[in-house]
Amino acid sequence: MARSGTAKRVTRTATVPEKIPIRLTVNGNHMELTVAPWTTLLDALRDHLDLTGTKKGCDHGQCGACTVLVDGRRINSCLTLAVMKQGAEIVTIEGLAQDGELHPLQQAFIDHDAFQCGYCTSGQICSAAGLIAEGKAKTADEIRELMSGNICRCGAYPNIVAAIQQAMERS
């Protein structure tokens, strides 16, 4: 990596930091974009790539509405800098359905009426996809514990747990 000398660095800190080109694979598509160093993955998805299914709730890692899968793991995209995920594979709610078929979790959320306002739902579903991939939750108690990073202000929790159980049984 090229490193600037002291004189150049001083000049640069006095100016607006340069934007940085990054490459991401988002829902199977190769994307090239240029972002400021402080652009979160959440803002990159929503504002640069028009993938607004991922929601900005608290923007502080407290609600889980921004949950996406990065290299197969669920994370809070609001606390992730896009520049730090150079080359990563991202899956958002838009990438879960395959060939026009809803993902089993999407279908299960509909079957169990697992939402009311729907704002937390894309984060809930991406988080649940991560949970199922982890394979650590077996019981309803364990699902509740490992889904605790996703807050639902409407209180659809019993139906969310039922939906995840259905999807787990069918996966």
């Binding site: 889980g64 949950t67 669920r74 994370i75 809070n76 991560g130 889904m147 605790s148 990073g149």
Partner: peptide, 9 residues
């Protein structure tokens, strides 16, 4: 501590 998303990060 935290949530599974945060622990992953």
């Amino acid at each position: 501590g935290a949530s599974q998303q945060l622990r992953n990060m």
